[in-house]
């Protein structure tokens, strides 16, 4: 019991906060909206963490996958489908696309994979602009209908934020379970040395593709819910800068830890709203943050703190270390 409580205590606190915030701000739609967007960002950052933190690949097509799901969901809803069914189909479709986009990860590493993902993201964005009859091109789609509720009526206001909170909490719990399972340990082994992992009998290809599928599921569920929540989407809603911002949340908070990306998203997602009066300098601030993370905080806030704590313990006979890493 004791072990159980301490293990899930952070999750309980997070769940409490996630459900409390929409209620606290239910009187003020503007603040409540910031809370909703932050929750979505936590969900996205948690999904990207599975890739960036646990497989060691930096994928810049994350927003594109969210966008595919959003457009498919909008299209199917407009064709008369129930939103929830449309979301299910859209998310799974987009996640299957995510697996396909993960195929390059079997051949490419590091910068080459990231560049490849950037190219894929650019192709997706161009496609959103190009296929006007599906996406309404650069103009975008506005007046997206809200999801309907089973008892009649629509999901709106605080109840929408509570649904987002529920999904986000589920997302964080799922990531925790995955990471602590054999699947998570296999991913970590692959991240550290994929050749050695394969030699030890791990099916690297299957694990990587599974990671892409699951992470894409996070992206696409978020994307499907994002569209009606904001009420407007355009290719810009899912472009490379969005991918980069999600990446920044993960890197800033600390990749490869459960709570790092959550912290990163909670700090960074409200930033554009707070900077609204200084709208002009938003890009500059983001640019400085990116550089700051790379130069000063390569392990992120939480990761950096963990490393410091670990450095406090005396490392046994470090001086004897003679072995080259590889």
């Amino acid at each position: 019991m004791n072990v159980l409580t301490s293990r899930w205590l952070p999750h309980a606190i997070f769940a409490f906060a996630a459900f409390a915030m929409p209620l606290v701000f239910s009187g003020n739609r503007y603040f409540a909206f910031i809370v909703g967007i932050t929750l979505l960002s936590v969900l996205w950052a948690t999904g990207m963490n599975l890739l960036y933190g646990y497989t060691g690949l930096m994928p810049l097509m994350f927003a594109g996958i969210a966008g595919i799901s959003a457009y498919v969901t909008i299209g199917l809803s407009a064709a008369g489908w129930s939103f929830w069914l449309a979301m299910l189909v859209g998310s799974i479709a987009a996640s299957l696309v995510g697996i396909v986009l993960g195929l390059p990860s079997l051949r490419l590493r590091g910068f080459y994979f990231t560049l490849c993902s950037l190219v894929i993201q650019s192709v997706i964005t161009l496609a959103f602009v190009y296929f006007v009859n599906l996406t309404n091109g650069d103009v975008g789609i506005s007046h997206i209908p809200l999801p309907e509720l089973p008892g009649g009526g629509q999901l709106t206001g605080t109840s929408y934020e509570l649904v987002l909170a529920a999904l986000t909490v589920i997302g964080v719990v799922v990531l925790t379970l995955l990471v602590e399972s054999g699947f998570g340990h296999r991913l970590i082994a692959i991240r550290e040395d994929d050749g050695l992992a394969e030699t030890l009998g791990i099916n690297v290809t299957r694990q990587r593709l599974a990671a892409f599928f699951i992470a894409s599921l996070f992206a696409s569920i978020g994307g499907a819910l994002y569209a009606p929540y904001v009420g407007f989407v355009s290719p810009r809603s899912f472009d490379v800068l969005v991918s980069l911002n999600i990446w920044l949340m993960v890197a800033f908070g600390g990749r490869g830890t459960i709570w790092g990306p959550v912290v990163g998203a909670v700090i960074l997602a409200p930033l554009p709203f707070l900077l609204q009066d200084y709208y002009m300098i938003k890009d500059v601030v983001y640019g400085l943050l990116i550089i700051g993370v790379i130069v000063l905080l390569p392990a992120g806030i939480v990761g950096g703190w963990k490393r410091k704590a670990a450095a406090g313990e005396p490392a046994p006979d470090v001086a004897q270390k003679t072995a080259p890493a590889r």
């Binding site: 054999g182 340990h185 296999r186 040395d193 030890l200």
Partner: peptide
């Protein structure tokens, strides 16, 4: 796996044995 502990290295070898 140089970033993992000895114990974690062994556990990794046991995963898919």
């Amino acid at each position: 796996f140089s970033e993992l502990t000895t114990r974690e290295n062994i556990a990794t070898a046991l995963l898919d044995a």
